[in-house]
Design a protein around this nucleic acid. Structure first.
Length: 409
DNA sequence: TCTGGGGTCCTAGGACCC
DNA sequence: TCTGGGGTCCTAGGACCC
């Protein structure tokens, strides 16, 4: 007999902040936020306290939110900071109003990635079917893992929690359920360092009272529309006819909403995937103008192209679609892209194509952000250009005159 | 309260082909 | 002269997630 599906969602608790607290244990229990600045705050601190262990730097030595005057958002807040209403994705300015005394530390991506690899490796040693959902989250298929069914998955979840803590000294929260959709919601029920187990028959009791926004895939826009229609809880969606939802949200979205509200989701746990695009973008310290700040903008542009090229080369990919992204001072976004005849990972080729794209957007407004993207990726070792060349010159294909519009490229 | 950076997926129109 | 439908690729924008 087939075992019923048991899917876990695991979320590291305040991941970025917890990683920093391992370095600065003296900050435990204090409101700390991670994020914001491009200035290496911790380097400044270390310089000032050179020669002393990091753990001996007194909390008073750290910068506070009230002293922080930069663009940017909070990546993670410790639980003491969350008590003041500070949370991820919140602007630094707003956070400073809510909790001016919170200490600010920058993101140390290398360190966070190191811990990310460590906790994921620990999980895979216990349960091999793991789907990456970013730096601090995974789905795990418990179904076929020995012991994965005991107490609905609670026993295995405890084992994983313990193994991660022993290896990294970090805590996580786990939800186990019949599918990814419910597991994701369940992992939030007992945060931090919690486990919750949800069964199919619990959907009505545990899921229906939750606000619609708790469904992974319902964002601010969908939430607003649901509210306008008088639907605020997940149960309100479930109470509607499928056809009614299809009428208001379209065939695919309406059906999905109905399924989600009833806790139905048969998506598999996907262990491997290939990247679709790679990009680099940056928000300037102050808004820049294409003409007045031409030199500065040009240098940033070149740097972005070089960084994307570096990423592609380091990871072994090439791409054919080169694109740019602008954010204007009024927060409107414009994108342009162009697909090249050959794959590339070369910074100059990327810069050339991205430069063409830049000519096609409005550059009279001041810019807040500039980004460069490479899409239509292929593995560099799969020799995609040779394949393209072969198909273009295959003897069975007659050489046709190119239409005039192609000459533009 | 003026809102980062890195992604994925979906939609929709037009070009082009059969 | 007018009328098709299906499929794929390209491009721009937008919603959403971590």
């Amino acid at each position: 007999m087939d075992s019923p599906r048991r899917i876990a969602h695991l979320d590291m608790d305040a991941f970025f902040a917890s990683v920093e607290l391992l370095r600065y244990p003296q900050l435990k229990g204090l409101p700390v936020v991670i994020g914001g600045g491009r200035r290496r705050v911790d380097e400044m601190i270390r310089e000032r306290w050179a020669g002393r262990p990091l753990s001996e730097i007194p909390p008073e030595a750290f910068p506070r939110l009230k002293d922080y005057a930069g663009r940017g958002v909070i990546t993670t807040a410790t639980y003491p900071a969350r008590q003041f209403g500070v949370g991820s994705a919140m602007g630094m300015m707003k956070a400073a109003k809510l909790c001016p005394q919170a200490l600010v530390l920058p993101v140390d991506f290398d360190e966070v990635r190191r811990f990310s690899r460590a906790f994921k490796a620990t999980i895979r040693e216990i349960a091999p079917v793991v789907e990456d959902r970013g730096i601090d989250e995974v789905y795990i298929d418990f179904t076929e893992v020995p012991g994965g069914q005991r107490e609905g998955g609670r026993v295995l979840a405890r084992l994983i929690q313990k193994a991660i803590f022993e290896r990294t000294a970090l805590t996580c929260s786990i939800g186990v359920a019949p599918n990814k959709l419910i597991a994701k919601m369940a992992s939030e029920f007992n945060k931090p360092n919690g486990i919750s187990v949800v069964h199919g028959e619990d959907v009505q009791r545990l899921i229906w009272p939750l606000p619609v926004r708790k469904i992974n895939g319902i964002g601010p826009k969908a939430e607003a529309k649901l509210h306008r229609l008088g639907l605020t809880a997940i149960g309100d969606i479930a109470a509607r006819e499928r056809e009614w939802l299809v009428g208001h949200f379209g065939k695919s979205n309406g059906a999905w909403l109905h399924d989600a509200a009833w806790g139905r989701d048969d998506r598999p746990v996907v262990t491997e995937s290939e990247p679709v695009s790679m990009s680099r973008e940056t928000t300037f310290e102050r808004d820049l103008h294409a003409v007045r700040d031409r030199a500065e903008l040009g240098a940033i542009f070149t740097d972005l192209c070089e960084r994307v090229a570096g990423d592609l080369q380091r990871k072994g990919y090439v791409g054919r679609t080169i694109g740019i992204k602008l954010r204007y001072d009024d927060f409107r976004i414009a994108t342009r892209d162009q697909t090249l005849p050959l794959y590339t990972a070369d910074a100059r080729t990327i810069r050339q194509a991205a430069g063409q794209c830049l000519k096609r957007v409005d550059l009279t407004r001041r810019l807040r952000l500039l980004g460069v993207r490479v899409g239509k990726l292929a593995r560099a070792d799969s020799a995609p250009n040779q394949a393209l060349a072969l198909s273009a010159t295959a003897p069975t294909v007659a050489a046709e005159p190119r239409p005039a519009t192609m000459d533009l490229f």
